[in-house]
């Protein structure tokens, strides 16, 4: 009997030590797979909007992602809750990844459409999904308008906050 209880105690003691070790190991392994601090801190991209031509897509890189910048021509109406006014012109500022599975859609200036080659998704010039599997419009990256020619990607300015607030209102309504 005494031996049995001693063995039981040793079993429980080992179980406790092993459990602490297992939890610690799992935490360490999970953290090893985390993005590095340098990656997380990868910061801000400043864009000079005055260099953009009308109805011609400009792609800049922010946090490794392609950002679509499209200057609207006179015949392209601004879209409420999506178009961004910088200086005198309206622009689309969007993350250029298809909201289906993250391919980069191509822009066709003639039809003013984004077409994704992977699974056939289509978006209009404002990034609203019009055909295919994409479940929602192209995402809008955090940005702030510095002056009439410059925006900074990665910093959430008041214009961005307004767009996001309008979007989330829409979602709660739906």
């Amino acid at each position: 009997m005494i031996n049995e209880s001693r063995r039981g105690f040793m079993g429980k003691a080992f179980g406790a030590v092993a459990a602490v070790g297992a939890v610690g190991s799992l935490v360490a392994m999970k953290k090893t797979w985390d993005p590095l601090p340098s990656v997380m801190a990868a910061g801000f991209t400043t864009v000079d909007m005055s260099k953009l031509a009308e109805n011609k897509l400009e792609v800049v890189k922010w946090q490794g992602k392609p950002i679509f910048l499209l200057k609207f021509a006179a015949d392209m109406p601004a879209v409420e809750k999506r178009s961004v006014k910088v200086g005198d012109h309206y622009y689309s500022v969007m993350i250029g990844l298809c909201t289906h599975l993250g391919c980069i859609p191509a822009y066709a200036p003639s039809s003013k459409q984004f077409k994704c080659a992977c699974h056939g998704g289509e978006f209009d010039a404002a990034g609203i999904n019009t055909f295919g599997p994409p479940p929602r419009p192209l995402d809008i990256p955090p940005f702030t308008i510095k002056d009439e020619n410059t925006i900074v990607l990665g910093e959430a300015g008041p214009e961005y906050q307004q767009l996001i607030a309008a979007l989330s209102q829409e979602q709660t309504k739906a």
Partner: peptide, 17 residues
């Protein structure tokens, strides 16, 4: 997705893991 890739996009960290 970010955890699996080790970055916001497929990058060096993704390749090595």
């Amino acid at each position: 997705v970010i955890w699996i890739r080790g970055n916001f996009y497929v990058s060096d960290a993704t390749l090595t893991r």
